[in-house]
Design a binder for these strands. Structure first.
Lengths: 97, 97
DNA sequence: AAAATTTGGTTTATATTATAAACTTGTTTA
DNA sequence: TAAACAAGTTTATAATATAAACCAAATTTT
């Protein structure tokens, strides 16, 4: 039987966010917005969900006078992502074992 | 920029259905239901969506006296699945190129 | 042989989710 | 100093997933 897919990650935008954060030390709101093409509203909501799940850390501050929201994946997020990818492989037959 | 994910396939149950159908000549409702663990209602709805999108063929008939709904992936479905998997790989970094 | 149960579904109602539109607050720029 | 812009947040709406309720026929139980 196929493993269930973490609904928090099985969402195009949230998955895109995690996908970006996996590859970098940290990324801010504007960067993520540009690289996902998401609207600010949608992104704000999804970042919040990831934060509340403990999948990412969110640090709101200022750089100069402009607000900046910095996001960073957590260990919990990294683990969840790994599990999600692993489960997903069963669906898309990319399994090597 | 990340490619958009076909919303018809980016659904746990529909993806599971296609995943099953990719590997076999055909599969019936009961078989798919058992292998996905889905409720009949949910499965019925999702099979219908895949059918209406032309991703699968659905043949309703009888085997002996019992009704049987036979599903088979179409070329359209196969192509869509391939594209979906390809797009998805960008998100989950399983890209080989 | 009625009644109850099971099989193989479909229809419909509900709960969740994703998404964008509208709004807020502060900052440049004209 | 008013208009436009930047960086978000809040809220309303549209879409989606999901299961509950339902149906018809067949099978099993009493």
């Amino acid at each position: 039987m196929l493993k269930p897919l973490d609904p928090l990650l099985h969402s195009e935008l949230r998955l895109a966010v995690i996908s970006i954060l996996i590859g970098v030390e940290a990324a801010d709101f504007v960067y993520i917005k540009q690289h996902t093409g998401a609207t600010a509203g949608n992104l704000s909501v999804q970042i919040d969900k990831l934060y509340k799940a403990g999948y990412i850390d969110v640090e709101k501050g200022f750089v100069g006078r402009k607000p900046r929201t910095l996001c960073k994946i957590t260990d919990v997020g990294r683990t969840a992502f790994k599990q999600y990818v692993d489960a997903l492989k069963d669906y898309i037959s990319v399994k090597e074992a």
